[in-house]
Simulated scan of single mutants.
Amino acid sequence: MNEVPSQSGADVSASISRLFVYPVKSCAGVEVAEAILTETGLEFDRAWMVVDARGDFLTQRELPRMALIRPQLKHYEMVLRAPGMLALHIKLDEVEAPVRVRVWDDEVPAYDMGAVAAQWFTDFLGTTARLVRFDPEHQRASSRKWTGDVEALNQFSDGYPLLVISEASLDQLNEKLVAAGSGAVGMERFRPNIVLGNATQAGERSELSPHDEDRLDVLQVSTDQGVAQLKPVKPCARCPVPNIDPATALSSPEVGDMLQRYRQDARVNGAMTFGMNAIVLNGVDHLLKAGQAVEANLRFD
């Protein structure tokens, strides 16, 4: 790592290069220039989820076509588009009947989004499906095994409020893929919320090394409202979703096969990992923006 000493003396200097919100769990993400930080992550992230007739969550793991459902967040509504479908408009401030749904091992209260949305998802996915919204009054906590004394809340995410990945990590993976005769892939396959890029201070460039995010302690993000603090807590174990091309919903094994070669992680019992799940320590209601400076110390444990 070619480090540029920061004024605060932090070990690592970086910047937020990209921000992503995933309004509907397992559907396409929305790249945004800025997003409000809430106690459950970025505003509207995994606020909605698609469930089957029993109320169990549906994902790209079983239904790769979900990758083709593209949300757009507007001032008062979310607009969903998919190939061959008319746009579905969902008002941000309206819900219908209360329901109980399941995401992984958690049964949580939610709100059904109505028959029109249910028919839209059923028609596109080819299986009975309904759209639900997380009940904001419910507190779904991340695992204390990884968050320690901090009660970190999330909505319909897999378990943590935020996912952080560096551009350097993707660059290394793509170098390996290309060397093996496969094509490079985009960051969208890994579904991060925050992408860390290099920083420039006093005319000098600070270069991140691949998977620096694995070794960072609290991320200090300089916002207009002060310093937001985000803490990476758990390596993100990877399922087959990164094998799915988000542009076509077609799956091929090259990405997973390559990660299996060099990213088996003893911290999660040898699972292949890419990126770090993170929690919010401070900065609720701060506005995160692409380009903001990030500093952190290295963690040795």
Rank of each mutant, 00 (worst) to 15 (best):
I244D: 07
I244G: 04
D245K: 10
P246Q: 07
P246H: 09
A247Y: 07
T248S: 15
T248Q: 05
T248A: 07
A249N: 02
A249W: 08
A249V: 04
L250S: 07
L250D: 06
L250C: 04
S251K: 07
S251M: 11
S252Y: 04
P253L: 08
E254M: 07
E254G: 09
E254A: 15
V255F: 12
V255M: 06
G256F: 04
G256E: 14
D257W: 08
D257V: 10
D257H: 10
M258F: 10
M258R: 11
M258A: 13
L259G: 06
Q260I: 05
Q260G: 12
Q260P: 02
Q260T: 12
Q260E: 15
R261K: 15
R261P: 03
R261N: 08
Y262S: 11
R263P: 06
R263H: 14
R263C: 12
Q264T: 14
Q264I: 09
Q264S: 13
D265E: 07
D265I: 04
D265M: 07
A266W: 09
A266E: 13
A266H: 06
R267P: 00
R267E: 06
R267A: 06
V268E: 00
V268W: 00
N269C: 02
G270K: 06
G270P: 10
G270I: 02
A271M: 12
M272S: 11
M272W: 10
M272H: 12
T273C: 09
T273D: 03
T273N: 02
F274H: 10
F274R: 05
G275Q: 06
G275A: 03
G275D: 04
G275N: 03
G275V: 02
M276H: 08
M276S: 04
M276Q: 14
M276F: 08
N277I: 01
N277P: 01
N277C: 00
A278P: 02
A278W: 00
A278E: 05
I279G: 00
V280E: 02
V280H: 02
V280C: 01
L281D: 10
L281P: 05
L281M: 08
L281E: 12
N282I: 01
N282L: 05
N282W: 00
G283T: 12
G283E: 02
G283S: 08
G283W: 06
G283R: 11
V284A: 15
V284N: 12
V284C: 13
V284E: 15
V284P: 11
D285P: 03
D285Y: 09
L287Y: 06
L287R: 15
L288A: 10
K289V: 03
K289A: 10
K289N: 02
K289M: 03
K289Q: 15
A290N: 12
A290C: 13
G291S: 09
G291M: 03
G291T: 08
G291F: 03
Q292M: 11
Q292H: 05
Q292E: 15
A293I: 08
